[in-house]
Simulated assay, not measured.
Amino acid sequence: MSTNLAQLDGVAGARRHFRYFDYVMAAFVAILLLSNLIGASKLATLGGFTFGAGILFFPVSYVIGDVLTEVYGYANARRCVWMGFAAMLFMAFMSYVVVAMPPAEGWDGQAAYESVFGSTWRIVAASVIAFWAGEFVNSFVLAKMKIWTKGKALWSRTIGSTFFGQAVDSLIFYPIAFLGIWTTEQVLTVMVTNWLLKVLWEALLTPVTYAVVGWLKRREGVEVFDEGTDFSPFAKANSV
């Protein structure tokens, strides 16, 4: 990255006002909600590989999560994770209320509506818990690796953080959501396949990540290193 960037520690990064942070956070939450709402519970098979259909878009939220931590620091990424967590809870509550409302006489779309939006409590709980744990692991690993690599080799920390973050996500989501509904073999197959595909997605999207990170850093004019940062998920919003 450019040597013209002003280096900030975790304290200054957490308290600084950034020009584009709100837009990145909005994209993060939007992709998170849409990928969980539309594709999480569908099994698909292509080329002999069976996987959850949501994998096509859900990893993009991890890419944006990497961008948030890399550009804005862990404290700001933590705010986005909690924002996404709250949005997912509201989405689950809204889906439950709307699906439970009695359909109007003559409206025959209830069954189809329930099949799309009527996720079981298991899928909802699995999605929320897996996202929360996986994203915090992802951000923590990336922030720590940035310090260890002295800001070099961005590819190593984006792929490395996804490797661990998505492993935690998959290990939590699939057993909670589908064990006992799918066969154990299906759960294990989809869990491992999706984890590997998500890491592969991250690797393939590395050029995009480099472009977005570089563009944002040049416009924000800073490089944030999370030295001295409080990595607790429960630290205050402006805390380090």
Score class of each variant (00 low, 15 high):
107 W>C: 01
58 F>K: 02
122 R>Y: 07
76 N>P: 02
85 F>P: 00
59 P>H: 08
124 V>K: 01
55 I>M: 09
64 I>L: 13
114 E>T: 15
70 E>H: 07
116 V>K: 10
63 V>H: 03
125 A>E: 03
64 I>V: 05
86 A>N: 10
101 M>E: 15
40 A>T: 03
77 A>G: 03
54 G>I: 00
111 A>R: 15
115 S>K: 15
75 A>V: 11
108 D>K: 12
77 A>S: 12
43 L>P: 00
108 D>S: 14
92 A>E: 08
80 C>F: 04
83 M>C: 04
89 L>K: 02
83 M>N: 02
41 S>H: 12
73 G>K: 01
59 P>M: 11
115 S>F: 05
67 V>F: 01
96 Y>L: 14
124 V>Y: 06
82 W>V: 02
47 G>L: 10
67 V>Q: 06
56 L>E: 00
50 T>C: 04
74 Y>M: 02
91 M>R: 11
51 F>W: 01
45 T>D: 11
46 L>E: 09
83 M>G: 09
123 I>V: 15
94 M>F: 12
117 F>W: 11
73 G>L: 06
50 T>F: 00
85 F>K: 12
127 S>Q: 03
103 P>D: 13
113 Y>C: 07
107 W>E: 08
53 A>V: 11
80 C>V: 08
73 G>M: 05
114 E>M: 12
62 Y>K: 00
68 L>I: 10
79 R>A: 08
46 L>V: 13
88 M>N: 07
51 F>V: 05
91 M>W: 07
60 V>T: 13
107 W>I: 12
99 V>T: 13
49 F>S: 06
80 C>H: 03
113 Y>T: 05
76 N>D: 07
113 Y>G: 07
92 A>R: 14
114 E>F: 13
61 S>M: 10
116 V>S: 08
40 A>F: 00
56 L>V: 06
64 I>K: 02
89 L>T: 09
92 A>K: 06
52 G>F: 01
55 I>K: 01
55 I>A: 04
68 L>K: 06
102 P>K: 14
98 V>K: 05
105 E>V: 12
102 P>M: 14
72 Y>G: 03
88 M>D: 02
74 Y>P: 00
126 A>I: 02
113 Y>E: 02
49 F>C: 05
124 V>L: 07
41 S>I: 09
93 F>S: 14
92 A>H: 08
114 E>V: 15
80 C>I: 09
72 Y>D: 03
96 Y>K: 12
96 Y>C: 04
